[in-house]
Amino acid sequence: MNRFRMLAGRYMPGLLASVVVAVAAQSLASQYQAPVMLFALLLGMAMNFLSADGPCKPGIDLAARGVLRLGVALLGTRITLEQIAALGWEPVQLVVVSVIVTIVLSMLVARAMGFNVLFGLLSGGATAICGASAALALAAALPAHPGKERATLFTVIGVSALSTAAMIIYPMIVRAAGLDPVQAGVFLGGTIHDVAQVVGAGYSLSNETGDTATVVKLIRVAMLLPVILAATMITRARGGHESGQRPPLLPWFAVAFLVFAVLTSLGVVTPTLRQFGSGLSTWCLVTAIAALGMKIQLRELATVGIRPVLLMFGQTAFLAAWVLGLLWLGAR
């Protein structure tokens, strides 16, 4: 009991601060119909004085690591094999190829532009898989390097802003290209970064498009596991994680992600539990990004320059053109 009180006293102030920022971000996002991750990040950055040495620092560090990993693990409750099988294997192949090509190309372009190749993996994974959630998951698996937290936060800002823009622009592209409802769903689900924006764009066209877009998006979320595995292998090859130790081939949150996905597919996880797990995952990720925001200084982000912006814009444009081209070739 004394140990529990000691741990609670050590971590509770920072955890509570992160949760309060997450609640405020959720309220603002609901009111203004904007990405909750972006609000959490900006509000967290405004409260960055809390991460200085003081009572809140240990809890903020815990939220940025442990709560983040729990949120990634619970993403597995959103996926079932039945959803994937109902759509057919063509969209699955399209998603797998698109994710691989986007990430590999992002890493090559990042190196050519003079960035750390891990920034290409981080931003490319966020673009190709599931936006801010993927950025946070990959950051948790990648090795420590100078500017890692700044790169993570910049990536979250970039994919959130680009995802919001895509939610508005991509339905117009769908109409201009003359895509049928299923093709439109595959395009929207295969290109827009964040789940919420995929849902918004898909159902703004039709229920069929929205349903298809949501399932395709979940297939992209499922790609998070092999990409985390690749990131962990890079970490092991480079000598370890922040602790200085070589991490396991699959970190615990990736294993938990897989377990939750299998249990959900088998029906062990009931619809009520799925809804709870999905909601809890969102809250964990929002709390984690709020904590990460508290750990960054505004002047650090001001020094990133225009090149990272161009890289992320290029990644987004490439993915949209790539998926649209594959759909066009498949329709011929």
Rank of each mutant, 00 (worst) to 15 (best):
G131D: 04
M37D: 07
S18F: 07
G178P: 04
G277I: 00
A8W: 15
V21P: 06
P181M: 01
Q93N: 15
L42D: 01
A254I: 09
G125W: 02
H193I: 08
G14M: 03
V323R: 03
L205N: 07
G189N: 11
L311E: 06
M223Q: 14
L266R: 01
G244I: 10
K148E: 00
P146S: 08
S278Y: 01
R220K: 14
V159Q: 05
R175Y: 06
G124C: 13
G114D: 13
A24V: 09
S204P: 00
S206M: 01
A112F: 10
S281N: 10
P146A: 10
L87R: 00
L121F: 11
P181S: 10
E90P: 13
I103M: 05
P247T: 12
P247F: 11
V109Q: 04
Q297E: 15
Y203V: 05
L75I: 09
P35N: 02
G210K: 01
I228K: 07
E300R: 05
S206N: 03
G277N: 00
G240I: 09
S281Y: 07
A290T: 02
A321V: 15
V67I: 08
V304P: 03
V104P: 13
I60K: 02
G178W: 05
A29G: 03
L280H: 06
S123E: 08
A261P: 05
